[in-house]
């Protein structure tokens, strides 16, 4: 449980850390869309350039960004192999038994790999530089207009915030209970399927009981402080666009323009 890097916030004070979560969210969504709209060599090079620039300014470090790829490596390899074998365009490179590899297949596969890698690194960069709380804050503010059509935006955002807020303590608790039961001789790695499933009860049950207790306490604490939903509620930390966001928006516009031009002319 010590090696979770995807979705983890890495504290820092870079331009990307300081930018408004809404800017970062829109930037990430735009980047993702552009990766699929303009997926020629020039388009991908533009996206890669943007990512490299973003990673270096974020000061998160390439090691972590690259490590985030590990989780999807199997999926990428699997899709790549399928693509390589199924696509039959251009000249034939290899023709052996049932396997036929063509130049078209190689190009498409390469493009796919680069695109997926750029996608994952971009999204991880968002979570590396944005705390979960400010991310939900950004989402809440962005989706506020949906209130008009009776979507409970605040409630959903509050639920997300609470869920995220409880991940670390629940992980800690899971670790503690696992260690305690392991000290009593618990074993979840041997025996048949049923034995293994049963082996998890001593961890799962205390976790569920604990989660309910926490939920109760939190509900009491919120009510004691007169929480009554989102209506008329103001924010302590109001999100505000700053100079940093202006810079990022300018860069983003240039990038989008380049991507669209690349799509049309190349």
């Amino acid at each position: 449980m010590n090696n979770i890097t995807i979705g983890q916030y890495i504290p820092g004070n870079s331009i990307l850390h300081r930018a408004d979560p809404r800017t970062k969210l829109i930037a990430t969504i735009l980047y993702m869309v552009m990766l699929f709209v303009s997926d020629g060599p020039v388009g991908l090079a533009c996206s890669a350039a943007l990512l490299i620039a973003a990673v270096s300014t974020s000061k998160v470090g390439w090691k972590l960004v690259l490590r985030s790829l590990k989780t999807i490596l199997i999926v990428v390899i699997f899709t790549a192999v399928i693509n390589l074998l199924v696509i039959k365009e251009g000249t034939v490179l290899v023709n052996f038994w049932l396997i036929t590899i063509t130049t078209g297949g190689v190009f498409t596969t390469l493009r796919l790999i680069v695109r997926l890698f750029l996608l994952i690194m971009g999204v991880s960069l968002l979570t590396f530089t944005t705390t979960p709380i400010s991310l939900t804050d950004g989402i809440e503010t962005m989706f506020k207009p949906l209130n008009k059509i009776k979507v409970p935006v605040h409630d959903i955002a509050m639920m997300m915030t609470i869920a995220i807020r409880f991940v670390p303590p629940l992980m800690e608790e899971a670790g503690r209970i696992t260690r305690a039961q392991a000290s009593r001789g618990a074993d979840y790695t041997s025996g048949g399927l049923m034995a293994r499933v049963k082996g998890f009860f001593p961890i799962l049950l205390p976790m569920i009981v604990g989660a309910f207790t926490r939920a109760d306490q939190l509900a009491d604490a919120m009510e004691a402080r007169c929480y009554r939903g989102g209506e008329g509620r103001t924010k302590f930390n109001k999100l505000a666009f700053t100079k940093v966001d202006v810079y990022l928006t300018v860069i983003l516009c240039l990038y989008t323009l380049a991507m669209i031009l690349a799509k049309i002319f190349l």
């Binding site: 503690r176 260690r179 305690a180 000290s183 001789g185 001593p202 205390p206 604990g210």
Partner: peptide, 28 residues
Amino acid sequence: VGMIFQYPEYQLFDETVLKDIAYGILLR
């Protein structure tokens, strides 16, 4: 080595007190 953690009561899980206490030796 028997290990008793902080707030060990959070590790209780079984239906009855006796069953819970016996959990460790039953595994042996």
